[in-house]
Simulated scan of single mutants.
Amino acid sequence: MKIWILRLFSVMMVALVMSGCGHQLPVASEELLKQKKSVLVVTSPDLPAGLDQKLGAALNEWRSADKLAWKWLPQKTALDDEALNSIRETAYDQVIVIGSALFADAMKAAAEFPNVKWSLYQQSPERSPAPIQPLDNTAVWQADAGTYTILWNDWVKQQKLAGAPIIWITTTGNQVPATWAPSEEAEQIVMYDPENPEQWFQQLTFQAKQINAKWIVLYTPEASAELTKIRSLRIPFLDMTASVNYSLNWDPILNGIRENVKTDSWKQGLYTYSENEATAQMK
């Protein structure tokens, strides 16, 4: 009798095992969510034309092809409570911020959430980007400010060889390269003062006559409103801010972000966009 019972029990166990073959046990939705990689994307309102559509298409592709979970907060002028609460409530693999205007807020938030990886992307090139020191949990991508210098080096050298003095119009935030206007030639630099435009123009007129300027070069976009006055001096004029076509190629940049998240290849640091990601040409 005991032997018969043992045999019956064995047959039942085999049947149970066989019935389970080829059927995957259901996974709890919470466990599945934990297995997915997830990112929070925050973008500023001043994205280049078409970038928001390109970003939306990329995010949908990442979700379908890579099973990447994401949340996108567009048109943000600051990392507000909505963004910060989302970081508190969700264990994101990365927070991706696109837009230089959000960098200051992002650095403060990165200090508040040291266990979160932050990736900051400049949305358009700046000749003199604000200096930034990445934290241990931040990676920052910026355009190479030196590109402007490289493009204009030959022209500036030609003027110097020809003995043609240049008056540079700029601001403290847009320093003219020292190789173009060394400190001993300070009289060739005029700092634009939007608070006192008449006094500033008088100073420009005085210095241009003092050095017998052969060129006036606008090195800061802040003074673009004064072009009519500048041209009234009847000195050859060059607007460097409008003479370079510098654009970012977002397809390779977004592909890099995708690969970064997929392969866990995130690394802290300050980076410049590669030649494949940014192009600059003289107009």
Rank of each mutant, 00 (worst) to 15 (best):
D264G: 06
E275I: 09
E259T: 15
R258V: 04
R234K: 14
M240E: 13
E259A: 12
K267G: 00
I235M: 06
A242P: 01
R234E: 15
A242L: 05
Y246V: 07
K262Q: 15
R258N: 12
T241N: 11
M240T: 06
Y246W: 13
V261P: 01
L254Q: 03
R258C: 01
R258H: 12
P236G: 06
W250D: 01
W266N: 04
Q268T: 15
S247Q: 15
E259W: 00
N249I: 11
I257A: 02
D239N: 14
T263K: 08
W250F: 09
P252Q: 11
Y246H: 14
R234W: 03
F237L: 14
N245H: 12
I257M: 14
S265P: 11
V261R: 00
P252H: 06
W266R: 07
S243W: 07
L248Q: 07
N255Q: 15
I253F: 03
I253P: 05
S247T: 14
P236M: 09
D239H: 02
V261Y: 03
G256F: 00
Y273R: 05
Y273T: 10
P252D: 10
L238N: 05
E275P: 08
R234H: 11
L248M: 14
T241Y: 04
S243M: 13
G256V: 01
Q268F: 03
V244F: 02
W266C: 04
T263F: 04
T241D: 10
N249L: 13
Y246K: 06
L270D: 02
E275L: 13
Q268D: 08
N255A: 13
S247P: 00
G256R: 03
L254P: 04
T272S: 12
Q268M: 06
T263W: 02
P252Y: 05
I253Q: 07
N245E: 14
V244C: 01
S243F: 11
L270N: 05
E275N: 14
N255M: 04
